[in-house]
Design a binder for these strands. Sequence first.
DNA 1: CGGACTATTCTGCATGACGCAGTACTGCGC
DNA 2: GCGCAGTACTGCGTCATGCAGAATAGTCCG
Lengths: 111, 111
Amino acid sequence: MDTSQLLKGVLDLAVLAVLREEDGYGYDVVRRLRAAGLSEVGDASVYGTLRRLYHAGALTTYVVPSEEGPHRKYYSLNGTGRDLLRRSAKTWREFAGVLTELVDHATKEAA
Amino acid sequence: MDTSQLLKGVLDLAVLAVLREEDGYGYDVVRRLRAAGLSEVGDASVYGTLRRLYHAGALTTYVVPSEEGPHRKYYSLNGTGRDLLRRSAKTWREFAGVLTELVDHATKEAA
DNA sequence: CGGACTATTCTGCATGACGCAGTACTGCGC
DNA sequence: GCGCAGTACTGCGTCATGCAGAATAGTCCG
């Protein structure tokens, strides 16, 4: 029904894409994803994804103490991460292409 | 890593799309999906999806005895199913658009 | 006829990702 | 001090995918 199922397997890619543009901390990544149109991402999902990607060796992290609140834990793409992004992006494009074509073909002649 | 996670929440849509074109039985739907490019769908997933969609009231079913093997259980889209397909397709296009844009933007300046 | 193989359906269980709800800590405004 | 916003993290539930396995019905081989 909602996008929660659609997100599965795609949040990794979305997070990588966002971090590719600029390092970011969890709370901020959530906001950026929502601003990009993924309005229904839960923060817990992002933290979980960040942790998975980190343990997978795709991200490095550093803490920046903030005087305007708690510390911020920044994440940054490393070589492995950029490589993963590239491959994931390719997989996504192929997958999305196939499915879009299937859907278009099926709904073209429908009202 | 593979497409199994990508499929989540999308198999419903793919099955609906395939059935929109022509009624089909499980084994056949699997083949059609694979032929369409979704080469990694598992048959058990399709049977499960078919059952979910049926219980959701999106499909009707009828059995056709086959002379070349066991009976075939055909599934057909009804009004609810076509409506679901239309709405799911819309959701998919929006979602895919957002993500593709995000990914393109992030990988544009990458090697 | 027995055995093997294909077509076809279905179920049990494991895996794993998303997210709600809750915890915790830091400054700021009142 | 109280509460609210920013920020991080975790436990548990839910649910879809899929592997492995079972069962039935025909066909072909010897």
